[in-house]
């Protein structure tokens, strides 16, 4: 699915916000370079204030970079023809709140100059895609957060864009809404859209994206596929219940066991015989085995690690969800 064609290219992008109160400027984005290939889902992840939204806005031409360039399909985003091929879901998207879903979509489709009949088809199609058919006549201001977000996504899709830019698509949604949104993004991915999304919510990204760029204080501190970033799984975790302290020390004495954190027994990636013997040891200690997992380091860990490496700071984890 992913081809080599580069859809979005960012090179040496910097943005310094100057204001009366900060005459020297606040560096929101600092010599950022990245590229997104066709069909790929690329995610920029970072804590609040790390410059993700600024980057997206520069890409969309809503704000202007201090230096560096961002090009989409090899063209400048200031060019209107480029914008005909992209869709944008803004953060905390809010649309004209007196209008209903279908009126809004009709308006946004009209901005692309589509004739009325095509707009009508398109509106039906999009409403059913985002599951808003039943609520098509509900004014935006009466919609729930989830409905709003789905309408906003539909609004980004009116021109069947090749590149979709999503700013925090799941922020503020309840778990069900988050799930729906993730499903929608999967669906769009299946349809071959290139997706650039940014989020500070790591779990959603983990599920959806092909590549991740981790941004921290305006810089890209790590980039790659999830596997590349996380590396291979290195240990097995056995969750137990009813492990008494002296039993635990006996289990801990086993050569394959790396350590015991409460009820969780961690052991190295040994042969299956080793695993069985550890399990036996646990049973002998009078405890029951709940679950055996081989966890891959979560993006969260990768994230914290990358930031630690970059900044050499102690408590960045606090900034991360």
């Amino acid at each position: 699915m992913v081809s080599d064609e580069i859809v979005l290219q960012i090179e040496g992008l910097s943005k310094i916000f100057r204001s009366l109160f900060a005459p020297t400027g606040v560096k929101a984005v600092d010599s950022l370079s990245l590229s997104v290939r066709r069909g790929e889902t690329y995610s920029i992840v970072g804590p609040n204030g790390s410059g993700k939204t600024t980057t997206l806005k520069i890409v969309l031409g809503l704000i202007f970079p201090t230096s560096g360039t961002a090009s989409i399909f090899g063209g400048n985003v200031a060019d209107v023809s480029v914008r005909e091929r992209i869709g944008f879901l803004p953060e905390d998207a809010y649309l004209y709140d007196v209008f209903t879903g279908e009126e809004l979509l009709d308006f946004y489709a009209g901005l692309f100059g589509y004739p009325a009949r095509r707009r009508k088809e398109l509106v039906d199609e999009l409403l059913s895609l985002v599951g808003m058919q039943a609520n098509r006549r509900v004014p935006f201001r009466e919609c729930s957060k989830g409905m709003r977000q789905r309408l906003a996504l539909a609004q980004a899709l009116v021109n069947d864009p090749e590149l979709l830019i999503l700013d925090e698509p799941t922020s503020g949604l309840d778990p069900a809404g988050r799930h729906q949104m993730t499903e929608l993004i999967f669906e769009l991915k299946r349809r071959g859209k290139t997706i650039l999304l940014c989020s500070h919510f790591l779990a959603e990204v983990e599920e959806v994206c092909d590549r991740v760029g981790i941004m921290y204080r305006g810089r890209l501190v790590a980039e790659g596929t999830l596997a590349e970033l996380a590396g291979a799984p290195t240990e097995i975790v056995i969750t137990t219940s009813g492990l008494a302290p002296e039993g635990a020390s006996r289990v801990g004495a086993h050569s394959a066991v790396l350590g015991i954190d409460g009820d969780a027994v961690r052991m190295g990636q040994e042969s299956s015989d080793e695993l069985w013997s550890v399990l036996d040891a646990i049973r002998e200690a009078g405890a029951r085995v709940g679950e055996v997992r081989r966890p891959r380091p979560s993006l969260q860990d990768v994230f914290v690690r990358a930031i630690r490496q970059d900044a050499g700071e102690q408590d960045v984890a606090e900034e991360v969800h």
Binding site: E91, A93, Y94, L95, L111, A156, I165
Partner: peptide, 14 residues
């Protein structure tokens, strides 16, 4: 303020 402008200006509108 309502951020309705983003959805419009990301369309081909000068």
């Amino acid at each position: 303020e309502n951020r309705t402008v983003y959805a419009v200006l990301s369309k081909p509108v000068r």
